[in-house]
Design a protein around this nucleic acid. Structure first.
Lengths: 174, 174
DNA sequence: ATAGTAAGTTCCATTTTGGAACTAGTCAAC
DNA sequence: GTTGACTAGTTCCAAAATGGAACTTACTAT
């Protein structure tokens, strides 16, 4: 069976994987959830081949997980932003984080920890806040450096601009 | 960046994907969660190339997501069963199901629906039961044919032996 | 005119995957 | 006592996906 056939299986897992089930797509989306929006920035942070990134972004736009939003006219330039469909992948991302934190942390503790802005407390990654029980929404969660992030200044920088922070992806006040 | 380097990134998503982030692995695990344990049965249900399946199963065993359990001596034969680490991937699987159900159902409704045995009610796929709120464990959830499964007898058969059913993967009574 | 920035595309080598056929150990039937 | 079936693979080769580096296009700034 070839990859371009699996989206027709009567299986929600196969259909989901037909969009996000390759080496890079979920890492691209991780960056999106951290506030990254531009081609150059995705490429620099992920270190992936440029044409591969181009493919992945285009496919995500095709499937309406991201949408292209122009931010200047001359020359035409645009950003890639999460749609509602894309934002709805947050539990999948946090599910992978939770599993990786538990089983793949190399004994150092989680590289990233999360605070639920709505209730103000730290939460385990997952579908619901482990403190208040409310559903975790990407815009209401602040990722912060955890114990497993020793000596990785580059990633700390990524975190510094994540949602929920002053001076983050959006201007703090307009 | 090559694939065999990503498991060293200080990122739980990348590390999780280094185990389950390829075309087939999560589909293999889906079958595991449905009670499939033997090479031939994985191969027949998934229709994937045999040596690819062999690779994937070996990698999952290496990472202790599955373990090999002998079931006969002459000739030596064994089954692949989920470990605790593997069972802990259930929320990731159900996260993909939930997203696929919502966004990729082709207008037909979910192919599979889930009943939480512990409370006896139907639940949305996810980390917790949408009825009673308890964490969903693979062994306490029964997948059943949903509206999106029209005319797919093969998959109905897969479901018929899933956990929580009499006459399923284990003998009903010993 | 030269350099810089952003978002790609092109070319080519390497890696991964897919398909079909073949191997190995054992039992059961003819 | 040879043939066929069953289970779990492996081998060979072609096709597809990926990675790396250089090049392109459309501007702006110096």
């Amino acid at each position: 069976m070839r990859w371009d056939e699996i989206d027709n299986l009567p299986c929600s897992i196969a259909r989901s994987l037909s969009v996000v089930g390759d080496r890079w797509t979920l890492l691209v989306l991780r960056e999106s959830f951290l506030g990254v929006r531009r081609f150059e920035e995705f490429q620099q942070r992920l270190g992936m081949a440029r044409h591969r990134l181009s493919d992945r972004l285009n496919r995500l736009v095709e499937h309406e997980v991201l949408r292209k939003v122009p931010y200047q006219d001359k020359p035409p330039r645009h950003e890639y932003r999460l749609t509602e469909k894309g934002l709805d992948l947050y539990p999948v991302i946090l599910g992978l984080v939770r599993w990786g934190d538990r089983w793949m942390d190399q004994g150092r503790g989680p590289p990233v920890v999360y605070r639920h802005q709505t209730c103000g407390q730290m939460t385990r990654p997952g579908q619901n806040c482990s403190h208040c029980g409310a559903e975790l929404k990407a815009r209401e969660v602040t990722p912060m450096a955890g114990p497993g992030l020793d000596r990785h200044p580059a990633l700390k920088q990524t975190l510094a601009r994540a949602p929920g922070r002053a001076g983050g992806a959006k201007k703090a006040a307009s």
